[in-house]
Amino acid sequence: MRKFLIFLCLAICWVVFLSAVVEMPPFGDPANITNRHVVPRYLEEGVEEGGASNIVTGIILNYRGYDTMGEVTVIFTALAGVLAVLKREDVKTSTTMVATSPVGPSLIVTTVVKLLIPFIVLFAVYTILHGDVSPGGGFQGGAVFGASMIHYTLIFGLLTYMRKIRLAVKVPLESAAILSFAIAGFIGLFFGQKFLTFLMPALSHEAQYLLRHAMLLLIEVGIGVATGIIFGSIFASLEKVERI
């Protein structure tokens, strides 16, 4: 009886969902409502209005700038949460497993990491700067940059990391993403438009395009640097061991 009831419920659900699927518009049809609303505008004028030849970047940073600004804030809040619970690492009181372990890192791994880290950072910079022409951008490049710092910390210990990237440098850079977004947003206000609107009617066509491009680059670099540094900071807070 129970099994029959289960079967009946499943059958009813199946029929309902299947009828819903039948009602759905065909996938990828240009006549779909979703494809007629904003997509043509994005595709036709996205390069011009967005300021980036990669339309995805233009949409993320320009048309949906508020959303991306929220994402950046989420990452910053994650860092704030981690720091509120775990506190920052400190030169005087913290150490790592690497420093205290009797085994120590392997010579092979140390050599290879030393060899590869410049290339990883180079790739991160490339990904950040190439966000407006090819897949990539601030978040991805920043993640690669953060991964390189995590590698470095795992091999050479937290103390070397603290010596290389000091708190006085790190703390301002952590907020670089939100700051660059705010600066780019207020440029819009300066020209009498809304916040985060990249339209500057007072300027000529070429100057607008150039300025838009520069603003996107500013935001991209800000996101990249901040994401990487925040990754490193979160990792350092998680990695540190209180020295006894």
Binding site: V103, S106, I108, V109, V112, L115, L116
Partner: peptide
């Protein structure tokens, strides 16, 4: 070639230690 053999080395070393 470089990274994968290094990873193998690191894993095996960690397991042994």
């Amino acid at each position: 070639l470089v990274t994968s053999s290094t990873t193998g080395h690191a894993l095996a070393r960690a397991a042994f230690k």
